[in-house]
Design a protein around this nucleic acid. Structure first.
Length: 429
DNA sequence: TCTGGGGTCCTAGGACCC
DNA sequence: TCTGGGGTCCTAGGACCC
């Protein structure tokens, strides 16, 4: 990441999709408009995206679906299972539209992007922000908010007000010093990007309650009690850009695939199916960024919300040489499972993690004879990945992953795969 | 019945080397 | 008798993000 400490003439826009997952569902199902809608996490667990109507009912982020289902129904609303294939596809469309508005675009998450608007002349920033909003809405159906300021941290704050204050109609330009001060005064310190629960509590105790108070706090105090990250946050609030634009996302340094089961699992055979399935998914990610892993961890958890004996354990091993060859990874993972598994426990979650991830090309030469890149194995993986991409996930799969998958997560309220399956294309009447 | 799943970066402390 | 201290690498754990 590029880091500068100079007072900047940068102009940074943060574009953030409103209630992204809910908005994706609404694009394809207009009946969901104007009623309370929430999208649930894996296993239909917690609410991870809430419509304005859900928020108005006083239902907080992360609320367990089953606790609020009755309330939502009473108000004519619905809860939906998450459909990440759909959201990923919609995200790509939104980002493609955004890339037309700046030569420098950083995709920050599935529903957010930073645009550098500083490098070229824009006659009227407010109109430009409006144009971004309207174009994304028209071409993808997704409503977005636009916040503009001198640094990423300030752009986040601008975006927050753009969303929250109806008078701004979804965009706010926060470049003027007086307006910045006004906004910081109204921003609780815990809402700043980079200030989490721990820092929030600590700062409150020391009488720093707003973003303005943090910006103007004693520098010695900040340096003493906060890390370099906190220091950068304060500089960013002052208008010095410290968090540069990061255009090409770096290859992931760790890959985790872990999911809760739909039921308690006690049989080792079922855990082995889950572990095989997760390894398959994780290895696909590994190969898609042209990397190999040198470290593998397998872990098991019992249900922490349930009374009874708890057991959480993990086992790991190095992979010599680094690899991304699924059959071999499954074999190693199943050996690790033997180490972690204990009979007599009801397991609720399993996961696999790859670490020490390096580029395919960086595998030490002396391993070439045994490297998966060396022989037909890489071609085989390439073919499997290609077929699964074209014909759908798990068209080709590994026998160890099982067929019945009774443990697989629950998605009872799933909407159709509108964008990724022919059979689910919406019909025009 | 039902309580998410990914990630990043930073720091402290131990191991090891000279 | 003498067991310093600096550098580097690794790991675990904390804090944060969406």
């Amino acid at each position: 990441m590029r880091t500068t400490g100079l007072a900047s003439d940068e102009i940074i826009a943060l574009v953030d999709c409103n209630n992204f997952y809910v908005s994706c569902e609404r694009v394809f199902n207009p009946k969901l408009d104007k009623i309370p809608v929430a999208v649930l996490s894996n296993n239909d667990g917690c609410m991870v995206s809430r419509s304005a109507e859900i928020k108005a009912l006083g239902i907080p982020m992360g609320a367990p679906g089953f606790k609020w289902e009755a309330v939502v129904k009473k108000h004519g609303g619905v809860l939906l299972s998450s459909n990440y294939a759909l959201y990923g596809d919609m995200s790509a469309r939104v980002m493609e539209v955004l890339s037309m508005f700046s030569p420098e675009l950083e995709i920050y998450s599935i529903d957010e992007a930073f645009l550098n608007l500083g490098g070229f002349r824009i006659r009227n920033l407010d109109q430009y922000a409006e144009k971004i909003r309207k174009t994304v809405k028209k071409w993808t159906g997704i409503p977005v908010s636009v916040g503009i300021s001198k640094t990423k941290t300030l752009a986040k704050i601008a975006n927050h007000f753009a969303k929250k204050v109806p008078a701004f109609h979804g965009s706010l330009n926060l470049l003027d010093d007086t307006r910045i001060e006004e906004a910081l005064k109204r921003t609780p310190v815990g809402e700043i990007w980079g200030i989490g629960r721990q820092y929030d509590k600590f700062l409150q105790q020391h009488g720093i309650k707003t973003a303005l108070e943090l910006r103007d706090a004693d520098e010695k105090f900040i340096d003493h009690y906060m890390t370099s990250v906190g220091h950068k946050t304060v500089l960013e609030l002052k208008g010095y850009s410290c968090i540069g634009m990061d255009e090409a996302p770096a290859a992931k340094k760790g890959i985790v695939v872990s999911k809760s089961f739909s039921k308690q699992v006690t049989e080792k055979a079922e855990l082995a199916e889950a572990v095989s399935t997760y390894i398959t998914r994780a290895a696909e990610k590994l190969r898609s960024q042209k990397t190999v892993a040198g470290h593998l961890t397998v872990f098991l958890n019992t249900n922490r919300f349930k009374e009874g004996p708890q057991y959480n354990n993990s086992a790991c091993t190095t992979l010599v040489p680094h690899t991304a060859y699924t059959p071999e990874l499954i074999k190693t993972a199943l050996e690790l499972l033997e180490e972690v598994w204990l009979p007599g426990f009801e397991y609720k979650k399993a996961g696999v993690m790859f670490a020490d991830i390096i580029a395919e090309d960086d595998v030490p030469l002396n391993y070439l004879e045994t490297n998966y890149l060396d022989d037909k194995r890489k071609d085989l993986m390439g073919t499997v990945d290609h077929i699964n991409r074209r014909l759908g996930r798990d068209t080709l799969f590994y026998a160890s992953s099982g067929l019945k998958k009774e443990w697989e997560m629950r998605r009872a309220k799933l909407s159709p795969y509108y964008t990724t399956r022919w059979n689910d294309l919406p019909r025009v009447k």
